[in-house]
């Protein structure tokens, strides 16, 4: 069906004439964007929104192919092994494209750093350090620290699973506070984490700020700090984690576009420019702003490469500080 759709869509320019004049100019056929998650998640939605706008500027459909599984490895490998002609791209995030390559290096059948190139960062997501109001009453980071110190092993945090960035963030945070908190991982992601907090299975978590907005309003959750460069204008009273006394703790969650390393530079430039253009469209910015996400493409291809390298180094450091035993 998808294949059929592709054929049909690629025939459109022929039907309406004109557009497909220069066959050798990139792109002359639909472009595939591999997303390492099932449809519906934040990364998938980002790919689809950007895809819509890139189609407008480049005249070819950008078709999302969901290839979930194995911490993103399956999708990354499919992209890295594709013909490096710019017709196979990849949109991943800090988990799949910074933590996975470090933590699961041995599971890859490709050399991630050699075979994959970063095209441009796309968006940055702020997160909250958030606590439940179900049988738990702390109003700021200091009170959390006191509570956790008074009750070692009794305060629990939930995360999106062992080795996820909320897990690392909470583990580092807990160490810096000098506390001992229990980890209750939840494989089902943000929705599951919210449920854990609301029913009181856990008391605290690092949670994407947009996902928690409704529960904060309902008084079920309370943000006590935000992991972001500055305070969010929607939550002027919530300090950044740095302001609360813990600088350099917490992950700025991002989404970024990648391509096979051998993709020709001019093609990458074309794609880069299309992402930049899409990022300036007010409708797109509005769609992201509604979710408290800032659209933040890289300045250039070189900037994207050095930024991503830096990210990998940061995670190399974090994963060696917080040893997580992932037995094979």
């Amino acid at each position: 069906m998808k294949r059929l759709m592709l054929v049909w869509l690629s025939a459109l320019p022929l039907v309406f004439g004109g557009v497909a004049a220069a066959q050798d100019k990139y792109p002359s056929k639909p472009v595939k964007i591999v997303v390492p998650y099932a449809p519906g998640g934040a990364t998938d939605i980002t790919a689809r929104i950007f895809g819509e706008h890139m189609k407008n500027s480049l005249g070819q459909p950008f078709v999302v192919e969901n290839k979930p599984g194995a911490f993103g490895i399956l999708g990354i490998e499919e992209m890295a092994r594709a013909k490096p002609d710019g017709y196979t791209l990849f949109i991943g995030n800090v988990s799949t494209n910074a933590i996975t390559p470090i933590l699961f290096q041995k599971k890859f059948n490709i050399n991630f750093e050699r075979d994959v190139v970063s095209v441009t960062r796309m968006a940055i997501y702020p997160s909250f350090i958030i606590t439940t109001t179900t049988g738990f009453d702390v109003k700021n980071v200091k009170e959390l620290q006191e509570q956790a110190k008074k009750n070692p092993g009794k305060v629990r945090y939930t995360s999106a699973g062992v080795g996820s960035f909320p897990h690392f963030d909470m583990e580092v945070f807990s160490r810096r506070m000098g506390t001992d908190m229990v980890h209750i991982p939840n494989k089902t992601g943000a929705a599951g984490m919210i449920n854990d907090l609301v029913v009181g299975d856990a008391q605290v978590a690092v949670l994407n700020s947009a996902s928690s907005a409704a529960m904060i309003k309902a008084g079920k959750l309370r943000p006590i700090a935000v992991i972001a460069e500055q305070r969010l204008k929607e939550y002027p009273d919530v300090p950044t984690l740095a302001e609360a006394g813990f600088p350099n703790v917490g992950t700025l969650h991002w989404q970024s576009m990648f391509a096979p390393a051998q993709t020709p530079k001019p093609v990458l430039e074309t794609i880069f420019k299309a992402v930049q253009d899409a990022a300036k469209v007010p409708a797109l910015q509005e769609a992201f702003a509604k979710q408290l996400v800032s659209v933040r493409p890289s300045d250039s291809l070189a900037d994207a490469a050095s930024w991503h390298k830096n990210e990998l180094n940061t995670w190399r450091k974090t994963t060696s500080e917080v040893k997580i035993d992932l037995t094979d």
Binding site: P39, G40, D44, I45, I49, A210, A213, M215, A218, K290
Partner: peptide
Amino acid sequence: GALTIHGIQPGP
């Protein structure tokens, strides 16, 4: 996913 695009977060 469709709801969040419109800025509607599921909630009580």
